[in-house]
């Protein structure tokens, strides 16, 4: 498989204190790094999952890829072409190949446009007015399991699942190679969630799409992704093939996330909560391993030195001084 998207050592930095204020108050570091030294690639036809809690930088990383967040350093290559240094005009051409589905299905659609205009909009933006827009809109709606009776409807007249389908149709309109889906199932009921995920899977095999799925929902990502990366404070703390991560999570944070998912079985009630506290502020990164403030296994070394990224198996890496051992064979 070929690499479609390659990201190398990417840093996304935001200024959080204005220049004058920083000068007057003597604030030396007016920046926060929302994404820090992130490297990964997405292959053609693959689904890559970015997992993390709120504030881990997963959405910012997704936005940086389509040019909605400023990159400080590092590189983003799409089909071998560097995107971070492209001018606006040239970037717009590439932008057609990468579509984004934003988080809230209803709020991400303009409330003043009908479904038909929402679907025609991408063609207008990319100067493709010569196409039969009605036919295009109809074709897109059919692809996502809706029909042209929805043409005249406004977003508030759609259910969450229907709005999500319109979002998928919009993302598909310019025949992208990669779709970045930010929390594609948040706010949907379980029965509808399955329909949306199945739709995404069907479109993937039909059109050969790649997905970058951003989510905090581990039960969902386990079913839909080939590889995942777990983010904490802007860094990848662990990455690898999905089944491998769920079988043997080496980083304590990954394991805590997996064990925090409530089990829909009353006989499996968990009695212990492993993780204490909450995610620290990006403006105030802890020393050493940034997870040590919440880690149940933290030792002196963790507070002092930053763990390097290590691979324990081909394609499975983590940042931890004391990775957890492989579970017993029967645990799988």
């Amino acid at each position: 498989m070929n690499e479609l998207l390659e990201i190398d050592d990417l840093v996304v930095r935001f200024r959080v204190v204005g220049m004058t204020k920083a000068l007057l108050k003597g604030i030396r570091d007016p920046f926060i790094d929302a994404v820090l030294n992130v490297s990964f690639d997405v292959k053609e036809g693959e689904t890559f999952g970015l997992v993390g809690e709120s504030g881990s930088g997963k959405t910012t990383l997704g936005r940086a890829i389509i040019g909605l967040a400023p990159t400080k350093s590092g590189s983003i290559k799409f089909k071998g072409v560097e995107l971070t240094t492209l001018g606006d005009g040239a970037f717009k051409q590439y932008r057609r190949n990468i579509a984004m589905m934003f988080q809230d299905p209803v709020a991400s659609l303009s409330p003043r446009l009908t479904v038909r205009s929402l679907l025609a909009e991408p063609f207008k933006i990319h100067n493709m007015r010569d196409r039969d827009l009605d036919a295009e809109a109809r074709r897109l709606l059919e692809m996502v399991g809706l029909n042209d009776s929805f043409f005249g409807r406004y977003p508030h007249e759609l259910s969450g699942g229907q709005a999500r389908r319109v979002g998928v149709a919009r993302a598909l309109s310019l025949e992208p190679k990669l779709i970045i889906a930010d929390e594609p199932t948040a706010g949907l009921d379980v029965s509808v969630q399955g329909e949306v995920l199945n739709l995404l899977a069907r479109l993937q095999s039909k059109l050969g799409l790649s997905y970058l799925i951003i989510t905090h929902n581990l039960p969902v990502i386990r079913h839909v992704s080939d590889r995942i990366a777990i983010m904490y404070l802007g860094r990848f703390v662990e990455y690898g093939r999905t089944e491998e991560i769920f079988r043997h999570a080496a980083h304590p944070y990954t394991r805590a996330l997996i064990s925090a998912v409530p089990q829909p079985d009353p006989d499996l009630r968990r009695e212990i909560v492993k993780l204490v506290g909450e995610i620290p502020s990006l403006a105030n990164r802890p020393s050493g391993c940034e997870f040590h403030t919440r880690c149940p296994f933290a030792r002196t070394e963790c507070r002092e030195s930053i763990p390097a990224q290590r691979e324990i198996a081909p394609g499975h890496g983590h940042r931890c001084h004391f990775p957890l051992p492989e579970p017993e064979a029967d645990a799988a």
Binding site: Q193, G194, N198, P219, R222
Partner: peptide
Amino acid sequence: DPARIKKATREL
């Protein structure tokens, strides 16, 4: 509920 499905699947 995807959390109850033990084996990974693409067809939920």
